[in-house]
Design a protein around this nucleic acid. Sequence first.
DNA 1: CACAAGTGATTGCGCACGCAACTGTTATGC
DNA 2: GCATAACAGTTGCGTGCGCAATCACTTGTG
Lengths: 176, 176
Amino acid sequence: MAIHPSPTSPLPAPADLGPLDEQEGSVCGASDWERLSDHESAAWHGFLQAHAEIQVELEHELQTAHQLSFSDYFALLALDKAERGSLRMHDLAKPVRLTRSGLTRLVERLERVGLIERAPCPDDARGTEARITEAGRALVHAASATHLAGVRRRFLTRFSPAELQLLAEQFGRLSA
Amino acid sequence: MAIHPSPTSPLPAPADLGPLDEQEGSVCGASDWERLSDHESAAWHGFLQAHAEIQVELEHELQTAHQLSFSDYFALLALDKAERGSLRMHDLAKPVRLTRSGLTRLVERLERVGLIERAPCPDDARGTEARITEAGRALVHAASATHLAGVRRRFLTRFSPAELQLLAEQFGRLSA
DNA sequence: CACAAGTGATTGCGCACGCAACTGTTATGC
DNA sequence: GCATAACAGTTGCGTGCGCAATCACTTGTG
């Protein structure tokens, strides 16, 4: 939230905007030097829009079919794929994209419903490791079917194999 | 959250999974019929990863530079672009991607710091319209500079013009 | 060996948001 | 023209999450 409406704004207001009176439309919405071209705008907004739509649809699907949030699902998935089905909190935080505090609460909830268990880390008494239970595995396998079907329907089937390969490379460019 | 660990799961557990005992690695993580190919997986996870990274980075930038969340920014942006700088709550909800209740709170906060004003809708006594103030316009213009620089740095400059054009079309395929 | 610095996890607190219920207003059907 | 439905916006409540402080344990240094 903006505590200070404008005076302490670190960037100067564009000087070429004129009196800022109420002309209609997007004619004077922003100064030209900061505008995006049509293709730039379409690509960027398409990216945001596509992600937002797909995200809410798939999350809703997972929620109604299996009562799992994305966080729940990704945590169970990471544990299911992990060696012996267990991971330390620290290592679970990254794939789930949560801070440690958020993860503590998530794991606590998942433990309460019997999908995972917590145990002290044997080699480092500071650590805690979360281990997926059989119930957790069964649920995440069922949830995967739902989720991957959604991913296919909403994403993968919209592209040719060649396009997917190119997209993979292009998305890779966006990370790090 | 999963209230019921597994018994009421609407999807049958895959029958071809075997005894589900603790083999290590991802060898038996999921049944084959639901797995993604390498390109599929790379494209999909790249999409998620790229969006997540860019999102947090740009949002953090906007927050530290202008004390604006994405919701704040998108609301101000939509109002700035709107006819006469005002929009009814209902019409503001869509671009900001918030429910009406969330929007009520958002607009309340923005009004409290003087970035927008609220007034009853003249032609429909049920409605409320939010109007951006001059302070709001100044702030959102400055914020746009920050934000669009981030979009360029983190997204647009990673692609050629031809790629951007293709991506715009491809993202368009993903929506609706 | 003691003691500071570093690290893993948890907890207190605050906040933004969605859902469902509610109020007030406008359209619709008889 | 009144009853009922549809609609705009707000509010109560619950929840998931981040930040900063804290606790517990480990590691490095004199």
